[in-house]
Nucleic acid binder design. Sequence first.
DNA 1: CGGCTTTGACCTGCGC
DNA 2: GCGCAGGTCAAAGCCG
Length: 307
Amino acid sequence: MDCSSSLDISLNLNINAFDRSFPAKLPEEEVKVSTSAGVERKWLVKDKSASELREELNRVYSENKKIKETLETVCEKYYALHHHLEKLQSRKSPGIDHIEQPTKKRKQDPEDFLGFPNGKTENSSSNQDHHHQQYEQKNQLLSCKRPITDSFNKAKVSTVYFPADSSDTSLTVKDGFQWRKYGQKVTRDNPSPRAYFRCSFAPSCPVKKKVQRSAEDPSILVATYEGTHNHLGPNASEGDATSQGGSSTVTLDMVHSGQRLALEKNERGTMQEVLVQQMASSLTNDSNFTAALAAAITGRLMEQSRT
DNA sequence: CGGCTTTGACCTGCGC
DNA sequence: GCGCAGGTCAAAGCCG
């Protein structure tokens, strides 16, 4: 059963209520913002009175709140539905996991069971692990794999996601280290080839890297790092790419924070994480939402500059 | 010429 | 033991 195809959870959130003309109104109040230190903050408010602006900001905040609430509600409902579906399926096939196993042919790859005992990993503080956890959980559901329960591999493994042009066929990611490609292979579960790299920055560095385009989103390169660099990064301030994840990875914290409570239960958490991932994807592809988000961020910046 | 990529062959682990 | 699939090796070619 193809879980992904049977469930269309793309959100058709009605955010029209949000005045999408808001960004378009901004030129009227020419705003220059620089967030770096030594900031130049220049506000040229011409035609609008402060009260009008405040009113507009309040409206933006309330809309933002509404969107978040809607998201949470959708999550709750989706989870309830999915849970119900699971129950029905488990009744149909007693003794079998609610998620169909495609094959038991091979043991999970190290990067497939980073372990995450209690939802944590060796470098659990980094975003990439959180992303990887989400990604793996998503993969388990989308590819209908059994949830991973094996104890995690001893080798330090981490996964980093890099945005990439889907037309770009080179499997190279810029993480600051120097890599030597030693192999490429087409794997069964992904039409795009997987490239194998060794760290060539130091001769004895044991770190290996696998890079493969995401099967679900070709615009994402999935880099799996194994081992720990036994040398400093090319730039000392860069640190270890295997534990830092690079600056290119993206977190949609607004969505995550709204779901934290719902993640308390493990099973439920898995479902929620998947949902969050898919919703984030759905929302970021929605120009309406991105416009709304941009407006909300602008509003927040304006508020901060005022204080 | 040295370093890197490409790519087919080979090795290894796993399930049946 | 066999077949499959992922991982690695190494020769050949390319490039600066």
